[in-house]
């Protein structure tokens, strides 16, 4: 496969995953704002930070308002990570790798793009927001379904999966990074209504409220949430799950080679150093420092994948 093609596949799936994650973050923020349990603007700042776009937002806007924050994340051209920008970038990459993906996958991406262009051609009203976000999530899910259902399980598929899980691990880590303080056992009274809202917001951001309650019960608190998002291998957005997938896909790519690739070595180090302890050890290490370290290592792995596979000259 061409290095350029691997690069295109990797970024196509990263951008799709990012668009979907941003949609989910917006839904969570909107829900919290509507139930009026948290302070409005502060919540939007944390949503922007979780989406990794707060600094850029501040560079382009003087004040933080709900409308401006929503617009920034939904459709701002200046924001390369807005949903619209992500979907356009995903499609651009899909055009670049058109020969590597099936017709069905291409059509699903193109349809996603046409839908997003139409839905996001003007400011989205509060009334339309839920339906718009729902359609975007449905569309990106359709692409994922087409990838799952029509693509050969070969190196093309491996690069798509690498992009998906790197982006997803990055997203989960950032959500934890922004909200880590509400998970610390020492801070405010456990079980206060503010905490409950914040915990709920974390779980909603990863579409896992129901699953968490089912597995951990109603009385579970911050330790369990941290465990769920970091170490639980059943949870498809946990760090351990995503890193496990990175490991698998890098191994498939390296089939037949005598030595592990550099990226494989990095993932092994990440897993050994950060995902083989219990959650108490993580809290001892310092949750914030832990997450920062994981984020650094994830971007190191992404760079190494580029180099190992000759994405660029």
């Amino acid at each position: 496969m061409l290095g350029k093609t691997a690069n295109g596949l990797f970024w196509m799936s990263r951008y799709l995953e990012r668009a979907e994650n941003t949609a989910r973050l917006i839904e969570t923020g909107q829900r919290i704002a509507l139930t009026r349990l948290g302070p409005d603007d502060a919540e939007w700042a944390s949503v922007l930070r979780s989406a990794g776009v707060l600094t850029a937002y501040q560079a382009h806007n003087d004040t933080l308002t709900r409308d401006a924050a929503l617009n920034w994340m939904l459709r701002a051209r200046e924001n390369g990570s807005s949903i619209l920008s992500c979907i356009e970038a995903a499609r651009q990459n899909a055009r670049l790798v058109r020969t590597a993906i099936t017709g069905e996958v291409w059509e699903a991406i193109n349809a996603t793009y046409m839908t997003a262009r139409e839905l996001l051609s003007r400011k989205v009203s509060e009334r339309d927001l839920p339906a718009v976000l729902r359609r975007i999530r449905q569309n990106t899910a359709l692409v994922r379904g087409m990838v799952h259902g029509t693509m050969l399980r070969n190196e093309i598929y491996d690069f798509l999966r690498l992009g998906t899980f790197l982006e997803r691990a990055d997203n989960t880590a950032r959500i934890l990074d922004v909200k880590y303080y509400v998970l610390l056992p020492s801070v405010s009274a456990v079980g206060s209504s503010i905490d409950n809202v914040q915990w709920e917001s974390i779980l909603r951001s990863v579409s896992a409220r129901g699953g968490f309650r089912m597995e951990y019960g109603a009385g579970a608190g911050p330790q369990e949430i941290a465990h769920f998002l970091i170490l639980d291998r059943r949870m498809p957005r946990s760090l351990a799950f995503c890193v496990g997938k990175l490991k698998d896909n890098l191994r498939y790519l390296n089939t037949g080679a005598r030595h592990p690739s550099e990226a494989q070595k990095r993932v092994d180090r990440l897993e050994r150093g950060f995902l083989s302890h219990d959650v108490a050890a993580i809290f001892d290490y310092g949750l914030h420092e832990y997450i920062q370290d994981v984020l650094d290592r994830l971007s190191g792995i992404a760079r190494q994948i580029e180099i190992d596979n000759r994405f660029y000259e």
């Binding site: 496969m1 061409l2 290095g3 350029k4 691997a6 190196e155 790519l253 596979n309 000759r310």
Partner: peptide, 10 residues
């Protein structure tokens, strides 16, 4: 002396 394309494996 040949024209070659950059693949993920060289």
């Amino acid at each position: 002396g040949r024209v070659a394309m950059r693949t993920t494996r060289g």
